Simulated assay, not measured.
Amino acid sequence: MSIVTQRIRDLVKKAIADNKVMIFSKSYCPYCIGAKDLFDDIHVDYKALELNDHKDGEAIQKALAEMTKQKTVPNIFVNQQHIGGSDALKSAYDSGKLQQILKDAGINAKL
């Protein structure tokens, strides 16, 4: 059982602040792969932190759950705005909301 320390919270907040598109992911998760593929398809750069490959992955996932109330991956942020997971990303894409969020963030997407 890992404990979420302030260091972990700070790591998560810094990753979100330092990257226009931040995806907390697990490399083997099909929903995470789908989310990354969507960003690849629209030519949007992102930073993915693979929690299963990070020594503090479990604690990072717990910190994200505290922050977002979402316990699953992918956990996606655009311009420091929490988008949600795979279903929320797909819904935002389908509705055109993602295009507006990206535009507001100064990110050019090929939609």
Rank of each mutant, 00 (worst) to 15 (best):
G34V: 08
K55T: 15
M67G: 12
T72P: 05
K26I: 05
G34I: 05
L38H: 08
N75H: 12
A59E: 02
Y28T: 10
Q6N: 12
I33C: 05
Y28R: 07
F39D: 09
R9Y: 09
I76L: 07
V12R: 00
K14I: 09
Y31W: 06
A48C: 08
D37R: 14
Q6H: 11
E50L: 13
Y46C: 10
A48N: 11
D10P: 11
H54D: 01
Q81M: 13
V4C: 07
T68E: 00
L11T: 06
P74W: 08
S25H: 14
C29K: 05
E58I: 04
A17D: 15
K47F: 12
D41K: 15
L11M: 03
F24P: 03
K20G: 11
A15L: 07
I23M: 06
D56A: 11
K13G: 05
S25W: 03
I33N: 12
Q70N: 09
A17T: 12
E66Q: 13
R7I: 11
M67V: 09
I8P: 03
L38E: 03
K47E: 02
V4A: 08
K71W: 12
P30W: 02
K71L: 06
L49M: 08
T72R: 02
Q80E: 14
V78L: 01
F39Y: 07
I76G: 11
A15K: 10
Q81S: 15
I60E: 00
A65I: 01
T68G: 12
L64D: 05
S27Q: 05
N52Y: 14
I3M: 15
N52R: 03
A65R: 04
L64I: 10
I60H: 01
E66L: 08
D10Q: 14
E50P: 05
E58G: 00
A17H: 08
H82D: 07
D56Q: 13
K47G: 09
L49P: 07
N19P: 12
D40E: 04
H43G: 13
R7T: 14
K13C: 05
C32P: 04
A63G: 05
Y31A: 09
F24D: 02
P74F: 05
I76V: 11
A15M: 02
E58C: 00
V12P: 06
A15G: 08
D40T: 06
M22I: 01
V44W: 14
D41S: 14
Q6D: 10
E50Y: 15
M67E: 13
E58L: 04
C32V: 02
D41M: 15
Q61A: 00
Q6Y: 13
G34H: 11
